[in-house]
Write a protein that binds this DNA or RNA. Structure first.
Length: 518
RNA sequence: GAGCGGAUAGCUCAACCGGUAGAGCAGCGGCCUUUUAAGCCGUUGGUUCUGGGUUCGAGUCCCAGUCCGCUCACCA
């Protein structure tokens, strides 16, 4: 739709005095023959590169006081107009550079027609040599300015100054959490650390993929829409396929499909992708979240435990050039090897309690009560021990810790230990009291898997909505023979939280789920 | 799902016991050719989240609701 000529109105937007002025200004620019929404602009330098160029080519004693001309592009986030010259701060992904916009050094009409009307947030291209102002600020002396995008909305004002120690101090920050999450683009424009967090997350994922590739794992994609929501204990989202008139579930885990691939002959596979769980939202939970799941044929629990340690430690070492990371004021040390402890040992260490899964329930309940845990009489030994662990031990696991050996009854897909079928060969990784990863030796005995599913069905009938469903096709795959294997899931969002020092999972998910407004 | 807290100008926030709804920034106009939280002068801008109620009078008190945050529950 051609917008030239007259002002336009967009239904659904309540224009304010400011936005009406901006819309009128855009019309006026077009009348002058200035296109407010530019096309391709070939930058020669990022802002950081332009600064570096100046430092590299203009030495203090030389006669030459400026570099050759460069072209940069970005948003104007601060503008100081002083009569016939103006200074602006032009921000791009890497950083920012000051631009010096002098009327008499710009083409006729550009200063009055364009520069003086710049709004905070406008995207421009600036061409000119890099020099240093008398206050020492490396700046671009603009010889031309190209308008690339005019803002209509009145952006929150950004004021940031760099302290002598190099830290950025913000004034009048855009801080309303709801608006930040709802309008993430504004959050990213105005809060530099937000852009940094998401770049860091991206680098972290890239390191993990590279390591997986290096170890010979094949990256695959398995269905998001499942007939049976399996592979974890959680309530699913339901959706519907019209043509097939079929209810489907968004997957809660890719586990059962990835193991079908082991049956099919893939010996090492992984997937980094979304899972969906229809449960509460919290600082640690978003309904859709990203997991890495990996399976290694002929391996076991220890294979994937070592894999987990390697992936996370490598990411930490490369991102921080250290094994230490500070999270929420606590120093976490990822130097290998990490602490390993069995569930029973950890309970003994923290509570002093000697418990055993073959003890009578009454004894276990009494011991749990002695440390303040009042559990219902219907509990089973494995569940009591697990609750004891979750309530009393988990919060204390601050440094990276592998907890090994879990009760079979809460691990329906894991292989039992050879010496005691009440336990499975499983581990979970805890950091800062939070579960980061979960892995085990995969159960590849179809008859035993069938029996486990039947047990889960009983729990389901008893009211546990999250108990596993019977998946006969998966059992059929096991009947075709699955090699012994180790498998692991790593919570990518939670790892990103730790590596970006983010208090909430929403700070590492670009568009977290919120209720719609209105 | 429960408890607690919050919602006032574009942003960040004030408003005493219930008595004319304000400031800084941004916006607009003016001055200003090396500023950087630029400065100076002037100025616009409000359904105080929504709907009821109490009151001579409600941003403020009461009730209901919406949305957000925190804690808990849920979450292998």
């Amino acid at each position: 739709m051609p917008l030239g000529g007259k002002s336009f109105h967009m239904r659904g937007f309540e224009e304010s005095e400011v936005t009406l002025q901006r819309i009128e200004a855009i019309r006026a620019l077009r009348e002058q023959g200035i296109e407010p929404y530019g096309n391709r602009y070939d930058r020669t330098h990022s802002t950081a590169e332009a600064v570096a160029l100046y430092r590299a080519t203009v030495d203090p004693g030389a006669e030459k006081r400026e570099t050759d001309s460069v072209k940069v592009a970005g948003r104007i986030l601060s503008l100081r107009v002083m009569g016939k010259a103006a200074f602006g701060d032009l921000h791009d992904l890497e950083g920012s550079i000051q631009v010096y916009l002098k009327r008499d050094d710009l083409p006729e009409g550009v200063y009055n027609g364009l520069v003086k009307g710049l709004a905070l947030g406008d995207i421009v291209g600036v061409e000119g040599p890099v020099f240093q102002t008398k206050t020492g600020e490396v700046s671009i002396h603009a010889r031309s300015v190209t308008l690339l995008s005019k803002v209509i909305n009145n952006l929150p004002p950004l004021k940031e100054t760099e302290e002598p120690d190099g830290s950025i101090r913000r004034h009048y920050q855009f801080s309303d959490l709801e608006l930040r999450y709802r309008q993430r683009y504004l959050d990213m424009i105005l809060n530099r650390d937000v852009r940094e967090s998401f770049r860091k997350r991206s680098r972290m994922v890239r390191i993990i993929r590279r390591e997986m590739d290096r170890l010979g794992y094949l990256e695959v994609e398995t269905p998001m829409m499942h007939h049976i929501a399996g592979g974890a204990a959680a309530r699913p989202f339901i959706t519907h396929h019209n043509a097939l008139d079929l209810d489907l579930f968004l997957r809660i885990a890719p586990e059962l499909h990835l193991k079908r691939l082991l049956v099919g002959g893939m010996e090492a596979v992984y997937e980094i992708n979304r899972n969906f769980r229809n449960e509460g939202i919290s600082i640690k939970h978003n309904p859709e979240f990203t997991m890495l799941e990996a399976y290694k044929a002929y391996g076991n629990r220890d294979t994937v435990m070592e894999l987990t340690e390697r992936l996370i430690a490598t990411a930490v070492e490369e991102l921080f050039e250290s094994t230490k990371v500070t999270y929420q004021g606590v120093e976490l040390d990822f130097a290998r090897p990490w602490k390993r402890v069995t569930m029973l040992e950890s309970i003994r260490q923290v509570t002093g309690l000697e418990v055993d899964i073959h003890e009578p329930v009454a004894d276990l309940l009494r011991k749990a009560a002695s440390v303040g845990l009042d559990l219902g009489p219907a509990e089973t030994p494995g569940k009591i021990i697990n609750t004891l662990f979750e309530e009393k031990v988990e919060p204390s696991l601050i440094q990276p810790t592998f907890v090994m050996d879990y009760p079979t009854e809460i691990s329906p897909l894991a292989r039992q230990r050879g010496d005691d079928p009440a336990w499975v060969e499983r581990f979970e990784l805890f950091i800062y009291g939070r579960e980061l990863a979960n892995g085990f030796t995969e159960l590849n005995d179809p008859a035993e898997q069938y029996r486990r599913f039947e047990e889960q069905l009983l729990e389901r009938e008893a009211g546990d909505e999250e108990a596993h469903e019977m998946d006969l096709d998966y059992v059929n795959a096991l009947r075709c023979g699955m090699p012994p294997a180790g498998g692991v899931g790593i919570g990518i969002d939670r790892l990103a939280m730790i590596l970006t020092d983010s208090p909430s999972i929403r700070d590492v998910i670009l568009f977290p789920l919120l209720r719609p407004k209105e």
